[in-house]
Design a protein around this nucleic acid. Structure first.
Length: 766
DNA sequence: CTAGGGTTAG
């Protein structure tokens, strides 16, 4: 690098070199890398050598005296500009730094310029930087710096990198991002360093200028770039990724993954906390693959991983049902010596339970406690609750109870409200309401306080097992003891009353809700609309729809389907079409259930042409006919005695459109064929079911028995009776009715007895 | 870690 010299003095040459050589020996050395960018200070000036120091002090005093009018300029002039003075760019900057204010410093700057017109531009740049530094420590630094920046431009003084950095930071704080960007453009590109880029990127992110920030980062991230990213760059970027955006667009998940990857290639990785935040965010946005990539980029870059980050990813993978990758990650954790914690095991156990793989969950549970391979992890109340819930959900509530005893004795871990809620739910679902109530009494004795979930669980249990009045009574008792219900309680009761067709009571509860200070949510409305539609009370359903809208809720697709189905059943096709039109206007797309409902009612009312037209529309909308679509048409053709048309559709669906018929489809056809005395054809369908692995159920057998009885095909009936027993398919009252009316009449009471016995045996072994 | 609703074919 060649340096134009204005003085022949050796010292000047030396100092000039010191100032200009970069980046190998920058005037301001590279700072140690701090973690916190915003507090990263401009480094303190190097103390000058002794003789220089006294010269600087003398100059400061002389200039201040000159300003105060106590002195003339001769002495200072001599000190600074005579041929014997060791004057240098560094010297002017040092003097400037010690002046009283930025305004005095500006005057000193002008003094130098007027007394030494041939002054090096570089020297002036550094002196001006010192003025910026002074201003930055004075009151109202932002406006002062903006003013000084304009002054520097008027006087054609190029910016130093540190001057520019200072300006960008303060202009950013003053929200003058455009001026800051002008500073960036103006700075000689060869002067730019990583620290400068870091400040610029930080300002851009904080002001929501994402595109500019990413472009700036791209410059740093180019392979072989002059200013590679450092840990501070990482701090700036990772803070921006997790920070909430108040303005500007946010950074897309793809951009996040790209940045982590590119920074990782430079050895810059987020700390454990930031990494965990990032992964959680990506998983919440259903970008599990992206989250996986981020974690593995950091792994590859050699960053330290903690269990928390892995736990975040495991949660996402679990929600995705991706057990394979969960296993892979666990293996990787082991390889990298990352100790799983109680949360890690909790996640594994939870997802195994949710997949109803409770025995495997119990294995993991034993493993975490086991001291065999190193550190054991103590299960906590959440671990126990997860397992107890898992056991209860698969009907193993007795084992759940055992586990509750175990947590008390082995781990001194006391059951809490959740523990009891899980068990109470387990016994309720199993229909053991008394046991559930016993547990409720027990928790009260142990002063584990029931909450609204306990209440709702018991109310639901009672309702589902035919004790609606007990449920209402229990609800009232709890309310008098201070445990209030919520929208869930009311939904449960409203649904229960709708199911027993007690619409008046359901409506009464709905009206009571608001009086009790419990505002209905959308689900309460949906439940009531469904109940009313099911009961055929479409006018009432419509008025609840109006109330729902008044309350600010919207109908969703399922609710529209319910209403359309209700109107169809009432033969109010015009109303059904009205709903269709309304949902279209509301931007709710009809789904296959909507179309199936219409097709079902059109074809059942004999309107096959319209049904097929709707079917074509369904396909045009990009929806695929389902087994229910075909079932509706097949059923209707059968009802109208058009077995051949039904069979044609049946052959169609299994061949061309690849919708395999299920037992409902076979049942419709077999029933219809038997009723029209085409029993042989029905039997061939039974054979086909066997070949295709479709399991007949009691409906299938009942249809066949009726058909076989008409033709008195005894042997075939015996064959089917044997198969029923083999398959442990329970006969129902229709089976028994048909067989007891038929077999004894033809002298086959023995076969009937054997059948019933076989059934009893199969029940006891099942 | 725990509680509520609604569709379509038999």
């Amino acid at each position: 690098m060649s340096v134009p010299l204005s003085s022949s003095k050796q010292a000047t040459v030396f100092l000039l070199r010191l100032c200009l050589l970069k980046p190998q020996t920058p005037a301001i050395p590279y700072y140690p890398l701090h973690r916190h960018l915003s507090t990263e200070p401009i480094p303190p000036p190097q103390p000058p050598p002794q003789d220089e120091d006294s010269l600087i002090n003398e100059a400061v005093q002389l200039f201040q005296a000159l300003e105060d009018g106590h002195s003339n300029s001769t002495q200072l002039h001599q000190l600074l500009f005579s041929s014997s003075s060791p004057s240098s760019p560094g010297i002017f900057r040092q003097i400037t730094r010690r002046l009283a204010s930025s305004s005095q410093a500006l005057e000193f700057f002008d003094y130098i310029r007027s007394n030494s017109p041939s002054q090096e531009l570089t020297s002036l740049s550094f002196t001006f930087q010192a003025i910026f530094e002074l201003a930055s420590r004075e009151p109202d630094p932002q406006n002062k710096l903006l003013e000084l920046y304009r002054t520097s431009k008027e006087r054609n003084i190029p910016l130093t990198v540190n001057g520019a950095t200072l300006l960008v930071r303060f202009l950013g704080r003053a929200e003058r991002v455009d001026v800051a960007l002008a500073v960036v453009d103006e700075l000689d590109p060869s002067l730019k360093n990583t620290h400068f880029y870091n400040v610029v990127v930080d300002v851009l992110f904080k002001s929501g200028r994402i595109v500019e920030a990413l472009n700036m980062l791209d410059e740093m991230l180019q392979p072989g770039a002059d200013c590679p990213p450092n840990d501070i760059t990482g701090g700036v970027v990772f803070a921006a990724l997790s920070g909430r955006k108040l303005f500007g667009r946010s950074i897309s998940d793809e951009e996040i993954v790209g940045l982590v990857s590119k920074l990782g290639a430079h050895g810059v990785v987020p700390d454990s906390f930031k990494l965990t935040q990032l992964i959680t965010k990506l998983c919440r946005n259903k970008k599990i693959g992206r989250a996986w990539d981020v974690l593995h980029d950091v792994m590859k870059a050699g960053g330290t991983l903690e269990a928390a980050s892995c736990n975040a990813l495991l949660t996402g993978l679990g929600r995705d049902g991706d057990f394979e990758r969960m296993n892979t990650l666990m293996t990787e954790m082991k390889e990298m010596d990352i100790q799983p914690d109680v949360v890690t095991f909790g996640i594994l156990i939870n997802h195994m339970c949710k997949a109803r793989r409770v025995d495997e969950a119990l294995e993991v549970f034993e493993k975490m406690k086991g001291v065999s391979d190193g550190l054991s992890v103590e299960p906590d109340v959440i671990t126990y609750n997860t397992l107890i819930d898992g056991l209860c959900k698969v009907g193993r509530q007795e084992e759940g109870l055992t586990l509750m005893d175990q947590m008390r004795s082995e781990n001194k871990c006391m059951p809490n409200t959740v523990t009891y809620n899980c068990l109470i739910n387990g016994f309720c679902k199993a229909g053991e309401i008394e046991r559930a109530q016993e547990l409720f009494d027990q928790m009260n004795k142990e002063t584990v306080f029931p909450n609204v979930i306990t209440l709702n669980t018991l109310v639901d249990g009672m309702c589902r097992h035919g004790r609606i009045n007990s449920a209402v009574q229990f609800f009232d008792e709890m309310r008098s003891e201070g445990l209030k219900g919520n929208a869930v309680t009311f939904t449960t009761l409203i649904n229960a009353f709708c199911n027993v067709n007690n619409i008046d009571k359901a409506m009464e509860l709905f009206n009571q809700m608001s009086k009790d200070g419990c505002s209905p949510d959308a689900i309460v409305y949906y439940t009531l609309i469904s109940g009313l539609s099911q009961a055929g009370r479409m006018d009432d359903a419509s008025s609840v729809v109006s109330m729902l809208k008044e309350a600010g809720f919207c109908l969703d697709i399922v609710c529209y389907n319910v209403l359309i189905g209700g109107f169809c059943r009432k033969n109010k096709l015009d109303k059904a079409y009205e709903m269709l039109k309304e949902m279209e206007q509301a931007g709710v797309q009809a789904d296959s259930v909507t179309y199936n409902t219409l097709i079902s009612y059109l074809s059942k009312s004999g309107n096959f042409a319209t049904a097929h037209r709707v079917l074509r529309k369904m396909v045009n909308q990009g929806l695929v006919p389902t087994v229910v679509t075909y079932g509706a048409l097949i059923h209707a053709y059968c009802l109208y005695g058009k077995n051949e048309d039904a069979m044609k559709i049946f052959r169609d669906m299994s061949s061309s459109s690849k919708v395999p018929p299920n037992n409902v489809i076979y049942n419709i056809l077999i029933d219809s064929l038997c009723k029209t005395n085409e029993v042989e054809l029905a039997l061939s369908l039974m054979d086909e079911m066997k070949v295709k692995g479709v399991r007949p159920n009691v409906t299938t057998y009942n249809a066949m028995f009726k058909g076989l009885r008409e033709k008195n095909f005894l042997q075939k009936a015996f064959d089917l009776m044997d198969r029923m027993v083999e398959q442990a398919c329970n006969p129902d009252y229709i089976t028994m009715e048909v067989l007891t009316e038929w077999l004894p009449a033809v002298g086959e009471t023995g076969k009937l007895k054997k059948f019933v016995q076989g059934y009893e045996v199969s029940v006891s072994t099942a």
